[in-house]
Design a binder for these strands. Structure first.
Length: 419
RNA sequence: GGAGAGAUGGCUGAGCGGUUGAAAGCACCGGUCUUGAAAACCGGCAAAGGGGCAACUCUUUCCUGGGUUCGAAUCCCAGUCUCUCCGCCA
């Protein structure tokens, strides 16, 4: 969320900065509400002062008047509240301002490649898709999942289940032992306020699974990513400077409705309602966001390099960036069956955008109160990594070679083949 | 599910109708002392919002939302969360 105080300093600059996002926003309305709001505040405070003085004086002859003032305050307060609500509503739906490095663009086609890694594998046979391979092995079962749960679910079985677990463990080990992240096993439920903090609410409610605990209880949601819960660790906090940066990693299931992606990736496990993801979150001083973003992205690509999977690093254009991000790198892994790169990680700096929503702050060297910078990145999406391994490591006979670094996590298994 | 206890500043913790934005301690910042550090001593130190070029000033805030009162951290009601005991249960 944007700080109204900052916006007010230069409305035009704010409007201009958001041009890249191509949102339709009534800036005049925003301006008008802000003025109205402050006007009401001034009126109310003047009355409050008057009332306070009477109370302090303890002059009984004025008590009746004080009562009258209270009624007046009430009226103005109602009006101010309504204006403020409208103001907040507009404000909470405005996305973050893209950083100047971010290329202008409409959609994913305008993303810009930064670099590439690895050799694209050549096959002397037609490479199969991950779901063919998995089904042939009898270790991916989509039919069973649709029977028990519906579409966009999968049963991962046997050695592929082991592989999935190995991937999670391998990634967690890397991030905790080499990259300085603290491992967290968090709740998978998030409160409404928590979802607001990272920007999933109010705008993207359609994508979230809501959980009903009991009639009339507070709203709860299944986390769409561990980012939500890890970032909110600092919600409502004033963090001590010496405890920065904070770095958290978690491997969790993620739940998404995937509304609006009907007909997209319907086959296979590219796009599911539920998937595992290893997520990194960094909480940093606000001026350290960009160096942290580079660091975090390196942590993600390093996993792919160790798994010897070919990838490319993209910088997202303004039109493809998430709501809370100011700058995002996507890591895309090579998928032979599709003959193209597909997203396997997304690392974003959110500047102070989430921190303002969460009221997450720290005091800098000069004892000034500042909002924190927050970053999140997948390190990596486990389901999609599984896919990438199936496809890139497939053999002619339908078996899968296990990447070297994963073997210690799989009882030194070297390949997965039909029993 | 039943019975209690609690929620106060960055943290711990007093206050239980009016000089309380809030004692005390810790932490933090500045100073004295020291070769330097530590200790000791002295001083400072809440946030949000509004007004002002600024110095500064005003308002709000003691879990949340209502209520009583001229006046609420303090009294009443509802809710949320936490803890203890009993029951049940992975």
């Amino acid at each position: 969320m944007h700080n109204l105080k900052e916006i007010r300093k230069d409305f035009n600059a704010f409007e201009k900065a958001l041009e890249k996002r191509s949102i339709n926003l009534d800036f005049n309305k925003l301006k008008e509400l802000d003025i109205k709001n402050r006007d009401f505040i001034q009126k109310r405070e003047a009355l409050e002062k008057e009332k306070k003085d009477i109370s302090k004086s303890k002059d009984k002859s004025l008590f009746a008047k004080s009562k009258e003032i209270s009624l007046n305050i009430e009226k103005i307060n109602e009006k101010q509240k309504t204006v403020k609500e409208n103001l907040d509503k507009i404000l909470s739906n405005i996305p973050n301002i893209p950083h100047k490095d971010v290329p202008n663009g409409k959609n994913e086609n305008d993303n810009v490649e930064i670099n590439k890694f690895g050799k694209i594998p050549k096959f002397d046979f037609a490479p199969k898709s991950h779901y063919e391979i998995g089904e042939n092995l009898g270790m991916l079962d989509f039919d069973l999942a649709s029977k028990t749960s519906g579409s966009r679910f999968v049963f991962v079985k046997d050695k592929l289940a082991l592989l999935e677990r190995a991937l999670s463990n391998f990634m967690l080990d890397m991030h905790t032992s080499k990259n300085g992240y603290e491992e967290i096993s968090p709740p998978l439920f998030a409160s409404e306020n928590t979802m607001f903090g990272t920007g999933q609410l109010p705008k993207f409610e359609n994508d979230q699974f809501e959980i009903k605990l009991e009639e009339g209880s507070d709203r709860k949601f299944l986390i769409p990513t561990a980012e939500v819960i890890l970032t909110n660790i600092v919600k409502d906090k004033i963090v001590e400077l010496k405890s920065l940066p904070m770095r958290f990693v978690a491997s969790t299931p993620c739940f998404r409705k995937e509304a609006g992606s009907y007909g997209k990736d319907t086959k296979g496990m590219i796009r599911q309602h539920q998937f595992y993801k290893v997520e990194m979150v960094s909480i940093v001083e606000q001026d350290k966001c960009f160096e942290e973003l580079e660091r975090m992205t390196d942590c993600a690509t390093n996993i792919l390099e160790q798994l010897e999977l070919p990838y490319r690093k993209m910088i997202l254009c303004s039109g493809d960036m998430g709501f809370s991000a100011e700058k995002t790198y996507d890591i895309e892994v090579w998928l032979p069956s599709e003959n193209k790169y597909r997203e396997i990680s997304s690392c974003s700096s959110c500047s102070t955008f989430q921190a303002v929503r969460m009221k997450a702050r720290y005091k800098n060297q000069n004892n000034e109160m500042l909002y924190l910078g927050t970053l999140n990145g997948s390190g990596l999406a486990v389901g999609r990594t599984l896919i990438a391994i199936l496809e890139n490591y497939q053999q002619k006979d339908g078996s899968i070679t296990i990447p070297n670094v994963l073997r210690p996590y799989m009882n030194n298994l070297e390949k997965i083949s039909l029993n």
